[in-house]
């Protein structure tokens, strides 16, 4: 733990959903620049436990930027100051000695706070359950190479499918809209021939679920794209709009 940075953390504390919540300030000495942001929180928590206080609850799991579980709003930005990086991959070398860092949970009506920095993102699961799949029961598939897919389409489908469902798009959007998330799945499946049979119902149902969850609508600020740790493109939202309008007007 032999680092030479002194960091002040202003962290949102909220004991449970019904609590009002408040900021608390903590000083963390001897932070190493090789530490990840979450490892700094580990140290804070150890410190709090030894002091007999309640540690800060925060979501995290894989700590390699792929599970999508970590979710901190750091100095006014989801996942902190770097581009294309989740909180767990953010390292303290991105900060300076003496910095004060403000850490808040994702804020959205559809993402209620559970405790401290932990929010409930099950709305995303429900959006997927509304149509983010191809209806193919196990065992129904034909040979994988019987259906060629143009490389360009496959690549774009993959780029859209790279979404990790972390919710940074919602957190960054001034409207707390989940259009980037929703459009990524709609795009992935719209770009592949396998997704074609259900494209209309998929677009209609997923957007309806998105709205029902209480997410705002998209005003194309592009904040989601800029903050997405996986670089999901705004063009997916345009594609979703096409899919949706096509389905609503033509099907």
């Amino acid at each position: 733990m032999s680092g030479n940075m002194n960091i002040t953390l202003k962290v949102w504390r909220q004991n449970k959903a019904s609590d009002k919540g408040r900021f608390e300030t903590y000083a963390i000495p001897n932070v190493s620049e090789d530490m990840s942001f979450l490892e700094m929180f580990d140290i804070l928590n150890e410190q709090l436990i030894i002091e007999g206080k309640d540690p800060v609850a925060f979501d995290h799991d894989c700590r390699e930027g792929i599970c999508g579980m970590c979710s901190m709003f750091i100095n006014g930005r989801p996942h902190g100051p770097l581009k294309g990086v989740t909180t767990c991959q953010l390292h303290m070398r991105s900060f300076k000695n003496g910095d004060t860092i403000v850490v808040e949970p994702w804020r959205a009506k559809a993402f209620p706070v559970i405790k401290d920095l932990v929010v409930d993102r099950s709305a995303f699961d429900r959006i997927i359950a509304a149509g983010g799949y191809i209806s193919v029961n196990t065992g129904n598939a034909q040979d994988a190479n019987s259906l060629p897919v143009a490389k360009e389409n496959a690549d774009h489908a993959f780029f859209a499918a790279a979404c990790i469902g972390c919710g940074a798009c919602v957190a960054a959007c001034k409207n707390a809209s989940a259009m980037l998330f929703t459009s990524a799945k709609i795009s992935q499946l719209a770009l592949l021939p396998q997704g074609a049979p259900e494209r209309n119902t998929r677009a209609l149902n997923m957007v309806a679920q998105h709205d029902a969850e209480g997410f705002g609508s998209c005003t194309n600020t592009g904040a989601c794209e800029a903050e997405c740790p996986k670089g999901i493109s705004l063009s997916n939202i345009a594609r979703m709009n096409r899919e949706y309008l096509g389905a609503a007007l033509m099907s």
């Binding site: 799949y133 191809i134 193919v136 196990t138 065992g139 129904n140 598939a141 034909q142 040979d143 994988a144 190479n145 259906l147 060629p148 897919v149 143009a150 490389k151 496959a154 690549d155 489908a157 993959f158 499918a161 992935q188 499946l189 592949l192 396998q194 997704g195």
Partner: peptide, 22 residues
């Protein structure tokens, strides 16, 4: 082999060659 078939049918975007095959 069945696994690959199943996953492709589900829309898993495996890497492909220019000819469109896996």
């Amino acid at each position: 082999g069945n696994i690959i078939d199943q996953c492709v049918a589900q829309g898993v975007p495996f890497a492909r060659e220019y000819g469109g095959l896996l």
